[in-house]
Amino acid sequence: MATYSTNQFKGGLKLMLDGEPYSIVENEFVKPGKGQAFNRVKLRNLKTGKVLDRTFKSGESVEAADVLETELQYLYSDGEFWYFMDMETFDQIAANKAAMGDADKWLKEQDICNVTLWNGEPLQVDAPAFVELKVTETDPGLRGDTSSGGSKPATVETGAVVRVPLFIEEGEVLRIDTRTAEYVSRVKE
């Protein structure tokens, strides 16, 4: 079992606490002049995202979390799980809804995703920062209608809805920033 001493603590280090994986957000070394030294640490739970404080006696060792970030190819979903493939080993890995977060609304088959694995299980799936998706449904644009700020909703092939300019028509392919869920541009076929 790999462990880290408090002397190795720094932002981003992944630890196991009470059986859960955490990432160090902040680490402060505290020592009274002639007394016991402590590390006061803020940690983020990698499964729930919750942040907690904990104080360690300096010199203590803590179990390392076996966390790995890797790129996996999205295959398909059966509604309960989302299946990904390791492109080197062809191993299939299933992510649940909690790990998917918002990523599922942007994913098309064969997209490459950044996946955080803990003991081989997906903790978090990040959609590619930009995706290109076809518009499946939108109202015909009424040119000159600026009452809605010059934009209208459009549904894309994955089911997600984004605000798009009025001139966008069904069948067009859009470039979308998944981090902000915003339209970026049209993609010429």
Partner: peptide, 10 residues
């Protein structure tokens, strides 16, 4: 002593 140090420093 370490408990006193903990409370003093925190």
């Amino acid at each position: 002593e370490a408990l006193l140090d903990l409370i003093l420093s925190h």
